[in-house]
Design a protein around this nucleic acid. Sequence first.
DNA 1: GAACAGATGGTTTTT
DNA 2: CCATCTGTTC
Length: 787
Amino acid sequence: MSVDYQGNFLPAYDQAFVKNGTPRPRPNAEQTNGIISPATAPTYLVAGPGTGKTTVLTLRILKLVTCDQIPPGAILATTFTVKAAAELRSRILGWGYPLIEALLADGSLSGADRLWLESVDLNQVVTGTLDSLCEQALNQHRAPGLQPPVMIDTFLSNTVMVRQGLFPNNLHSDGDVDAWLLGLRNDAKFGWNLGAKRDLMMSLWDRLHQDQVGVGRLGSAAVPANVSTVVQTTLNDYQQFLSSRGWLDFAMLEHETLERLRAGDLDDWAKSFQVVLVDEYQDSNLLQEQIYFTLCKRSGAALTVVGDDDQSLYRFRGATVEIFTEFPKRFAKFFRQPAPAPIFLNTNYRSTSQVIQFVNDFIVRDLSYQKVRVAAKPPIAEPQPKPGLPILGIFRDTLAELADDVADFLRQVNGRGYRLPDGTVLKLGAGGQLGDCCLLASSPQEYKPTPMPTARNPDPEPEARLPGLLREALDQHNLPVFNPRGRPLADLLIVQQLGGLLLEALDPRGMVQATDTVQKRIGSDARRHFPTWRDEGRLLARSNPALKALVDGWASRNPGRSGYVWPNSVSVLELLYGIVHYLPELHDDPEGQVYLEVFTRQLTAMSLFSGFEGRVVSDPSKPDLCEASVRDLLCDWLAPIADGVVDVDEEMLGSFPSGYLPVLSIHQSKGLEFPLVLVDVGADFKSNHHAHRFKRFPKEGGASHNLEDLLRPLSGLKGTTKRSGMDRAFDDLERLYFVAFSRAQEVLVLVGLNKTRPDGGTIPNVASGWDRNEIPHGTSWPITYLD
DNA sequence: GAACAGATGGTTTTT
DNA sequence: CCATCTGTTC
């Protein structure tokens, strides 16, 4: 007789989570279905926004451990991002131990149950992204004598694609291949350069794996024969170069894992699991589905998937929403078992009635979209009416006015309150801070890319977007913005100063930088930026004698104190932290902290490949080594940052600083919620211009849709593509803004230019209420416009 | 409703 | 740089 869910688990739950004298509400009926679905049963949870998805996953895991006595180490839970994995883990630990403690206080338990509960180590629950787990599996279960695989980052894989793929096969100057690749992006010739070509080739490479087609079968696709031959050779060269060094990119990692799972090589690993739970399943691709399915088949583990088709946003990464919407069918076919029935979680605990109604209305107004949703999906419901403020709209004629008025709105909301037309005062709750608000946009970029110089305008300035103008306008009110991904790193003064000081300390007067080897190994942006960086670094050093002494000491490899001898080899981290000491922005400012982390991360990443492991050699008897160690740091540490190829990743953002206005891409906002959400539905759209139709009202599919059409006929997903590329592009926009709007807890504010105003705007735009038949429904939206 | 001049704006998202 | 959109004029 084990711990019983109704009899022991729930009473313990009541006891463990009392807050201010009241117990936390018990899981509702639909959540309970998900939690208690039998340990051995495949479970299909369709969970709308704000319905307690993570809660159900956590409690299901805790129920499996306590009631079904499944060892924590036999439970595998994967999520889409590293950050989400960390959150799930902390929830399991944070809820699990109080719960177990409360269970142990339950006098009715048998001695055996008690013994079990006392032995439970929740740390052993395996959580992570699928990629991190594949990496672990391959590492721990490699054939004897084989080197562990080394995961490479995007910077390196891009470089290898260009140097070992494109160049040797003359793809940079192959007209036929150009024409074909251009066709994939609908002949959008602007910005067609080596980088764009490389990116498309990488997408093709990824997609060939994600759709389980394989490079070899590209010849059978609808590709001209001469093109497919040279493209295949290029991709094979890329692969061979990586394989010969034991390197893996993301596509190869997952592919390799699946192959070895199928061959039974990973059975030791697979069989350690009894339960596999997958979060955000709607963003899985075919390759990932096959990994999960094969893992469960080899091990006999039961599969639980959780997701929401309306929140599938990662088609460009191969995500195929049919894998989620048709999960019961696909599961039944693969395992030759009955199809699991969906458990719908549709009670929303996040938002006010107005927000829920708005979001429900948005997702059903386009008739064609209904065909691709999970069958019989109920609308989002509320546990009880939670009246709030109306949906607000701030629309202006120009971007400048819009930014000023949005900034002013935020200032008032954040201060004494903003008076709505009906007299209600909108004000952040007690203890409310600017961080309770956020701005969501399709991209967090603060500036448009710098235009090409022309005769009339030889030195064009990049044009600001809403996030950039809003930063300036808020700055006038002393309100700070947190948007570390908003500007190219290499352009930021603080990055230039840090980079410049490092350059000056490592390579005084640029002797190493000037060598041919270095000039060839770094990109054009780095060549352009390094001198500016040095100027900024020197300028700063001049104003701070102690800093100057530090840099000069390094430059001459002389500590400047008698009795000390400069060591033959020093970790550059010492220099980095020495300098950081004098740049308070890098430790006091939240954005500065992120920028510093970019430097430390890239140093760790490059240390893997450089023989010097991030150390500076200054042994006078070995001048070659001295130069080589500096060269590596210049080329593989600082140059990638200057070249704009290293980004701020998701996990670096951690939690948002409370006094700052976060600016996020809608993709980044998935899984988050904010009391007040501003959604940019059209600050970029001054006209009904073709070039940005894909962002609001597509007339054809984009590169990812075209790639799907190309490869689907050859993949196991044959037949899932019944809709045109254009329709799928529309579907994607519906989902994107569904996610954006449903982040709001209390207040949702739509912002944009007047031409995209939902009532009476003239530019067709999915986000402002148009359906794909070009019918504007915006006038029927209950939006209160703040004019 | 055709024909023309002048304006507009550049694919985004990430393990 | 240039295809496409917008507004003006006949």
